[in-house]
Amino acid sequence: MLDKLFKISPRAWRAWLSIQSRLNKGNSQPEKPQQKEKQTSIFTKRKRVFTLVFIVVATLYLVSSAAAEFNLIDGLESFPKAFIWITTYLVPDEKSLSNLPAILAKLSETVFVAIAVTVCAALCAFFFSLLGTTTTKTNPWLARMVRVVAAFFRNVPDVVWAMLLLFSFGQNVLTGFFALFFATFGLLTRTFIETIDEVSADCVEALNATGATTLQIVFQGIIPSVLSVIISWILYMIETNIRASTLIGILTATGIGYQFDMYYKMMNYASASLVVIAIVVVVIAIEITSTRIRKVIM
């Protein structure tokens, strides 16, 4: 089937070319050279743009790898060694299995913190986004303020939040909680504002015209319109936060991240690998569940 297609295509192409040339002959003569010139100029222009983009990307790579003292070939060469190391040391053994209950306890702690953070942040973000949206026409200055605050929280990464909060809260669950809370809150506020503006602007206008009050519009118009999109975002953020909380746990000495860090530094690689496997299994399981839920509600 496929090679038939390939066999035909050059022949078809030649036929097409001959039709083209015949048509061109039929055209009025003085127009032709001008048209050709215009066509070539478009193609050379495109070629030039491609060459330029290629040169810029190549220069960026060379300059930045020189600055970071990174060598691609060295990096690739170390791959097989790393693979061998992983397969020899990072394999759970019988002894490490006795640590499984402790690992699962820590993992579930991390997962529940991530879920709690996301739900709290989503609730706050929703009320905040109602103030930030232009559809409800609350107050343009307040709306701008909300957007600025949300942008600030969003643009500081969760790991940086964790570092900052370490000073005030020290190494405990609260630090990780707030670090994830701020980052999630910022992102969700902005997303919710966009969703509300996009999905419910029309029906808000209509409900406004019937004389409904702002609270009635929120509950009868906005919430029903955006609920499924918002739930879908919350599920997505739960997934992201489970991954992020693993990393933040290393910083704040809590949860599964810390467990991994400890085993790793004690050179108990078998147990560390068990942690990795447990995380992967849980993350995949949660992703599958949330994809199913999203399919149902959309």
Binding site: A206, L207, T210, G211, A212, T213, L215, Q216, V218, F219, Q220, G221
Partner: peptide, 14 residues
């Protein structure tokens, strides 16, 4: 929804 303007805020909300 056409009745919302004629109702109290609370009964409209719920």
């Amino acid at each position: 929804h056409g009745r919302l303007g004629h109702k109290s805020t609370l009964s409209g909300v719920v």
